[in-house]
């Protein structure tokens, strides 16, 4: 039980460290294009949304990716690995400025910045997406999981296509 601001900021600092570890592992999983494993960072009923910043700020709900629940994420993972045609590439996802913002009941509200750099055959590396995560984390047992990850991207003009999630 948190009794004063000092305790809360101490608790948030601790959560932030855990979330940073989580985000580093998350980025490594996506760099490896291991989308089956990516699904396991989420709770069963998690919401995952990749939304252009102009849509978000205009109150428009359309997402580049819109997953209600882990089942939809599994279907995306299956489609990417088994049905989709796309050029070979290297992925490099960096997550920075991780912040634990608030503890609300059993949930931790957090945010972070992210940058996805893509490198295709015979091409210079280029930024595919820069954006901000707005997250809700929960603990299931001792495991930290995402209950919600809203990825709002500033790079509104998508360079050709976004193949893998961010």
């Amino acid at each position: 039980m948190l009794t004063d601001i000092g305790d809360e900021s101490k608790a948030l600092r601790e959560h932030r460290l855990n979330i940073e570890e989580f985000n580093y592992a998350y980025a490594e999983t996506l760099d490896a294009m291991d989308v089956d494993e990516w699904v396991e960072y989420f709770t069963e009923d998690a919401f995952y949304h990749v939304i252009a910043r102009d849509n978000a700020e205009s109150g428009l709900p359309l997402g580049l990716i819109y997953c209600e629940g882990k089942a939809m994420m599994k279907d995306r993972a299956y489609a990417l690995l088994n049905t989709e045609m796309f050029a070979p590439r290297y992925l490099h996802l960096s997550i920075s400025n991780t912040r634990a913002l608030e503890i609300r009941g059993g949930e931790i509200l957090a945010s972070a910045n992210y940058t996805l750099v893509e490198t295709r055959v015979e091409e210079a590396s280029r930024i595919q997406q820069v954006g901000k995560y707005r997250d809700i984390f929960v603990y299931e047992g001792r495991r930290l999981l995402l209950k919600e990850r809203i990825c709002t991207y500033d790079s509104v003009m998508v360079d050709n296509c976004l193949v893998f999630p961010v």
């Binding site: 849509n55 428009l60 003009m157 998508v158 296509c161």
Partner: peptide
């Protein structure tokens, strides 16, 4: 009712 706009560049 507008739900949103996607934008992309295609080479």
């Amino acid at each position: 009712k507008l739900l949103g706009v996607h934008r992309n560049i295609l080479p």
